[in-house]
C-alpha cells in the first residue's frame, strides 16, 4: 500500500519491543521473588521444629536440645532500641538542618557527597572505628551502648539521606503558605514539613534499622560475646545479638546446631517483620486526615 502513512509502518515491531520489555521486567521481579521464597521455605523447613517456647526462653547451651536464644533476642532488642534512640534524633536533626537551614553552597554539596559515600563504607570499617573510639577511647568496653553507638554510625548516612529526600519532597508551596501566615521556621518545620515528610522518614529509619539488626561484622569487631548466659540489665552490660548467635551455631560441625541457626533466622525475620509492620501502622496513622 503506497498510501500508508510513514509513522504507522513499524507499529508491529514497536509492539513486540513493548511486550518484550514488559516480559523482561516481570521475569526479573519473579525471579527475585522465587529465590527469596526458596530461601524462606528452606530455612523454615530446617528450623521451624526448633522454634518453641523453650527455644525462646533458654540460654545457649552445649546441648542442642537445651539451647535457646533468650540472651541473643534480648540483646538484639536492647541493641536496636538503643540504636534507634541514638540514630533517629541525630539523623533527623541533620537532615532538617541540611535541608531547611544550611545555605546551599560548596560546603553543603561536599557534605552531601560525603554522606552518600559513608553509606557505602563496609560495615567492618565502622566496627574498627567503634572499637577504637567507643570501646577503647571512651572506655565503654564491650557494652551494649558501644555496640549501639557503632551501629548508629553505620546507619546514620542511610537515615540522613532518606530523611533529606522525604523533606525535599514536601512541596515548597506548603512552606510558603506557612511563612506567609507569620510562622517561624521552627513552626513551619514542626507543623507542616515534618508531618508531611514523616512517612518517608519512617521508611528510611526502618530500612536502616533493618540493616542494623542483621549486621554481624561490626559487632564481632567490637567484641560482642558469642556465649552469654545472662541478660543485659543496662546499656553498659556485655551482650550478644541474634546474628552473632546464628553465626556461632552455623559454624559448628554438628547438624543440629545448623538447624538451631535456621531457627534463629526465623526469629530474626519475625522481629524484622514486626518492625516493618509497626512502621506501616505508624505511617497510616500519620497519614490520616490527608486524603
Amino acid at each position: 500500500m503506497s498510501g500508508t502513512p510513514k509513522t504507522g509502518t513499524n507499529l508491529e515491531k514497536r509492539r513486540r519491543q513493548a511486550r518484550m520489555f514488559r516480559f523482561l521486567c516481570a521475569a526479573m521481579t519473579w525471579l527475585a521473588v522465587i529465590v527469596l521464597a526458596i530461601l524462606l521455605v528452606h530455612i523454615t523447613k530446617q528450623g521451624i521444629k526448633w522454634v518453641d517456647l523453650q527455644f525462646l526462653t533458654s540460654f545457649p547451651s552445649r546441648f542442642p536440645d537445651q539451647a535457646g536464644i533468650k540472651s541473643a533476642l534480648v540483646g538484639t532488642l536492647w541493641l536496636i532500641g538503643l540504636t534507634a534512640l541514638v540514630s533517629i534524633p541525630f539523623g533527623m536533626a541533620s537532615a532538617i538542618y541540611l535541608e531547611e537551614y544550611a545555605k546551599r553552597g560548596k560546603l553543603s554539596t561536599f557534605i552531601q557527597i560525603n554522606i552518600a559515600n559513608l553509606a557505602g563504607v563496609p560495615s567492618i570499617v565502622y566496627g574498627m572505628l567503634g572499637l577504637v573510639i567507643f570501646v577503647r577511647f571512651f572506655a565503654l568496653g564491650r557494652s551494649l551502648i558501644a555496640g549501639a553507638l557503632t551501629m548508629s554510625l553505620l546507619i546514620l548516612p542511610v537515615i540522613i539521606i532518606a530523611s533529606r529526600e522525604a523533606i525535599r519532597a514536601v512541596p515548597g508551596s506548603i512552606r510558603q503558605a506557612a511563612y506567609a501566615l507569620g510562622a517561624t521556621r521552627w513552626q513551619t518545620v514542626r507543623d507542616h514539613v515534618l508531618p508531611s515528610a514523616l512517612p518517608g522518614i519512617l521508611t528510611g529509619v526502618i530500612l536502616a534499622l533493618s540493616r542494623a539488626i542483621g549486621e554481624t561484622a561490626p559487632l564481632v569487631m567490637i567484641g560482642a560475646l558469642t556465649y552469654v548466659a545472662f541478660l543485659p540489665e543496662g546499656p553498659l552490660d556485655a551482650f550478644t545479638a541474634l546474628p552473632i548467635q546464628i553465626f556461632n551455631w552455623a559454624s559448628r560441625p554438628q547438624e543440629d546446631f545448623h538447624s538451631l541457626a535456621a531457627g534463629g533466622i526465623i526469629v530474626l525475620l519475625v522481629v524484622l517483620l514486626a518492625m516493618n509492620a509497626s512502621a506501616i501502622l505508624i505511617r497510616q496513622k500519620t497519614q490520616q486526615g490527608k486524603q
Binding site: 510558603q176 503558605a177 506557612a178 506567609a180
Partner: peptide, 8 residues
C-alpha cells in the same frame, strides 16, 4: 498564592 495551597 497563585495555586491554591491548603495544608494537607
Amino acid at each position: 498564592f497563585q495555586k491554591p495551597n491548603p495544608f494537607p
